[in-house]
Structures are given as C-alpha cells and as structure tokens.
Design a protein around this nucleic acid. Sequence first.
RNA 1: GCCCCUGUAGCUCAAUGGACAGAGCAGCAGCCUUCUAAGCUGUUGGUUGUGGGUUCGAAUCCCGCCAGGGGCGCCA
Length: 607
Amino acid sequence: MFEKEQQTVEAQIQAFCAANEITLAEIKWMPIPFSGEWGISTSFFAAAAAAAKAGKSQGVPVPALAQKIAEAVCSSLGALPAISHSEAVKGYLNLYFSTAEVARRVVDSALADGERFGAGSPKQERVMVEYAQPNTHHSFHIGHYRNTILGESLARIVQFAGFETIRASYPGDLGLGVITVMWAYEKFYKGREPVDIHERGQWLLKIYAEATNLLAEKEQETPEEKAQRETYETERRDLYRKWDAGDPAVRQLWQETREWSLVELRDILEMMDVKIDVWFYESEVDEPSKKIVDELIARGIASDERPAGPVIVKIDEKLGLSKEKYRVAVILRSDGTTLYLTKDLALAEQKFDEYHVDRSIYVVDNRQSLHFQQAFKILELWGFKQAEKCYHLAYGFVSLPEGAMSARRGRVVLFKEVYDEAIQRVLAVIAEKNPGMPESERAGVARKVGMGALAYSMLAVDNNKDIIFDINEALSFDGRTGPYIQNAYVRANSILRKSKVESQKSNGSDLQPSTFSYELTAHEIELIEQMSRFPKIVQQAASEYRPLVVATYVYDLATAFHSFYHAVPVLQSEEAVRAARLRLVAAAKQVLSNALKLLGITAPEVM
RNA sequence: GCCCCUGUAGCUCAAUGGACAGAGCAGCAGCCUUCUAAGCUGUUGGUUGUGGGUUCGAAUCCCGCCAGGGGCGCCA
C-alpha cells in the first residue's frame, strides 16, 4: 500500500547509515502495534549488535545503542510524502502514515477491486489439492467434514493467492472395508435398502458395523462360532478375489452399492458449496498400480515373496539407512490384490502426467504420515522426480468426548445429523432475536449461519491439532464464531440499506467520493488497518497451507467492525463525514465477505 | 524399540526470532426510546510441561528429560 514511500525511506536510511559507518542488514518493516495511529517500524538491534561485535559500541549495551541509532536515523529523515511524523522508541524507528491518506487508499482499493480485493497476482504454477476422500459404502461423518472443509478452504486460499488450482476428490471405493459391506449386504440385506439418500448412507454404516462384528474373533468362542466366523471370512476373501478378477455379478453389485455412497457424497459437497474438478477413484488406479509393482519388482526395488508372502519394498535398506525410519512397506498382497499404498503410487503418476500439475497437496489426517512418507520415498526410488513436489498436509483427527469414532461400535457423529441440528438451532435463535424475519428467508439464513458456525469451528483450530468434537461448541453462535463474523457483515449491510444508497453491488460507484479529511476516530483507524492487512494474510495462509490464518484474521476484522459500529455513528453524522463512513462500511462489508468466502462461509444479508 | 504430533489463563485455542504472551468460553460489573444486544465496554485470571543451550532478544530455533495421543509387513 505504501511500497513507494517505503522505498524512499529505505534509501534514505541506507544512505545515512553508509555515511555514518553503521552496518545495516536488510531493512525489515513491521506494522507498529496499534496505538491510535497507523504506521510501520523497523528495529536497529541487528545493526547495534554488529557494532558491538566490531568493538565500536564503546560499552553501550545493545538495546541502548539500537535506540541511539534509531534516534540518529530518525532525526536525519526529512519530510516524507504520506508520512505525518516519525519517532524513535526502544530501538525501533516508527513511521506514522497520514491517516487520511491511509484511509483513502485502503477504502478506495477495497471498493474498486471488490471481490478481487486481496487476491494475489497470477503465479504460473498449477497446484492440485486432494481432499474429500471418504470411503464409499459408509456414511459421511464429522471427521470427513473436517477434511473436506479444510481442503476446500485451502483450495480457495491457494487459488485466491494466485495459483491455478485443481480440486481433486479421491473416494475410497475399493478395499477390504468396501468388500465387507458388499458381503454383508448380499448375504443378509439384499433389496431392503432405504430410498432416502442419507438414510441409505447411515444404513450402510450399520451393515458395516454388524459385519465387522460377525467377522471379529471373540473371546472364548465355541468351536461352532469359530467355524462360522472362518466361513464368513472365506466368503469375504472370495468376494474380493472375484471383484479383482472382474466377475460381472460382483462388479454389478459393487457398482450399485457404490453409487449409493457417491450420491450422498455429491449431495453433501453441494451443501458445502464444494465443486470438485477431478474425481479419482481407488478402483481406477487399481490396474495401473499393478503395473508399477511389476516394474518395481523387475528393477529389484521391490522383493516378491509370493506365494508365501507379499510384495514388499525394504525402503530403509534401499536408502542405505542404518536406523529404521521408512521401514518395510507392503505393496501387494500375496493374493495379488493391491493395497492403499499401491494405488497411491499410480495416483501420483496420474496427477502429474495427465493433469500436468506442478505441486500436489494431499489433505489427509496425520495418522497416515508414515504411509505418505513411504509412498513418496517409493516413488523416489522408482525414479519419479516429482515425488519431491508431493506434500502431505497432515491434520489432527476428529474424535468424540467418548473417544475415537468407531463405525464398528456405532460411535459416529454423522455430518447430516449435525447439519440438521445446526439448522434447528439457528431457526430457534431467529425466532427469538429476529421474529420479524419473513418465513421465506428463514431457511436460507439458517443454512448459511449454521454452516458458518460449523465451518468456522473447524477452521479456527490449527491443522495439526486434534479436535474433540463437541456439538455445543461447534454450534455456538456467540463470541469467536462464524455467526459473530457474519453478524458484522449483516450490520454493515443494515447501515448501507438504511442509508438508501444502492450499494448492493458493493463497488461503491454510487457512493459519494470522500477524502477522509476529518479527524478519524481510533475505531475507524483500527478497522482500516485490519482491512489493509488482508492481501498479506492471503499470501501467508497460502504459503503456510493454513486456513487458520484467515480464520483468525477475519475474526479480528469483525471485532474491529463491531467496535466501530457501536462507537461511531454513520447515518446521523454530518454530510461529509457520513459520505466517508458509508464508503468505509461498504469497504468493510466487502473485505468481510472476501475473507469469509476463503473459509467456505457465506454471510446472509440479514440474520 | 524406532518415528510423528501435542503440551501456553479454570476450559477451548491464538501468537513460528521482536515492543506489556493475546482472544473466546466460564466468572464478576456495566450498556438496548439511538445504524440488528448473534453485539459493545470494563474486570479477574500466566514461572508458555521441565532442565540446559544459541541470540542483543526465545512460547517460537537446537539438545536432553517428563506427560498425553498417534503410527510401525499383506486395514484404509
């Protein structure tokens, strides 16, 4: 925002220091901690420390010396454009911007850029974000939700930051779990499935739980029970082998049951406003992955222990490591069927070869860290050089107060249950706080606010922290929550609506221009400062892969707006001030909207 | 045994080498004939698990230890 002025000052500082034999490293600017005025600062601790080391400090302690340098530099600076005044404090040089100029620049660019305010310049790099990998033949639970909202938010951030972004989903439509459900369905439940999309998902989950119980070895089982269980196990393995061999009847059954889950998944993604660009399925990389295994065996990277054992890669040994780190990975079962790891090898190849991506991010929970380290190392051993462009974004898993979610024990919180509950709770709050809201608007508002609460509760926690899911916390509407931020947007909208300017397009074109030439309150300055931070926040969040950065930011922005709203009158103020503040409100509304969008949250116009 | 993650206020979390470690919730005290109180203002609450080290400066970087969670040959 003040790059030009900053460069001018930097040049002056460099010149002064050179003339006075002060060794200066690069000048690092930071915003001054808010104290009623807006500005930037840089410290001279490094220069002072360098002087002390060179024996030029004459016994003055480093902090005091830094202060002396700051004072000298400060008094050497002449009048600077757009800078109202400067000072030297505690070793820092503080430059304060002319507040009217800051206000004008920030508000004008937010209004002029609109939905693009904060977006980064195009980066010439194509990034694929893979998330939304629930297994089929299951229902979508709150753990899948965290994965999906995290991935979607990351994709939006990376895209907004300027990268070409491809969203990929990778449903697990294959594997022993899938086969288990098919086995139990065909044996005990065939033709009895519910019609409703989500009921059917939950029903599949129930079948899975029952089936795994039937197949689990029990304590003190009778010989009959043991025989029964072993029969079941044989049937399940047979089914897997038939699927693998392409048995038409088994494939037909698989297609049909698989589709039930995919229908539910598409429905939930639609509720979340997630639009996937590329669908990969485990079943589709199954065959290609076998070819990679053959190649790995042929080249001596993998050891084929069949039929007595599986095909393995002794990664540590191949890398010449003496300490165990990547261990031994099984890449093909002894019966020739593939594993999760096998398929990830082919998937990586497809991502780079077919979609020409430059970078591939896998949003998968941190229990699978070893799996991805193994997959990427095997790719490397195979000679796949883009392996280094694969990044596992590991996040903490979601559990319940009673412990880990477990389909087998029926201890699962489903997304749909939480969704329905969220809507109910929001409707109750609307009935209480905004009884005048027309019936026709309530459902839409409830959906946005309920989803906002849930999304924010997931994204306001850093990636690698586990979440113990508590529905009352997740659906809280007070304090540091999604609805708090949405409410700031609604209040901004309310002022604009009552001002009778038709600024619904939000580009401010119908607002009167303003110079902010009156004396701004601290609340206005704080709000402007928050808005000005947004572009950098986007870049930081994108480079660190952390939606949390945006989540924290947008809360701070909303807080600044709420304080402003409470303390600073807009509509009742005199004409020139009113015009400027209306622009400020319109700009704030725009930035709130842009930032929320990066979290997958939409603010309603009223709530 | 080896590897990964976590440890900050009563609770849930921020702060990734800079100024006094900040929010929310919970608690306490105020604010609705005034632009939406899903809000605002004030207040209570800290030896950043622990011991060293690096640095002008460490919650942050390095080493050790303690505690909790997760992972480790044919689950995904």
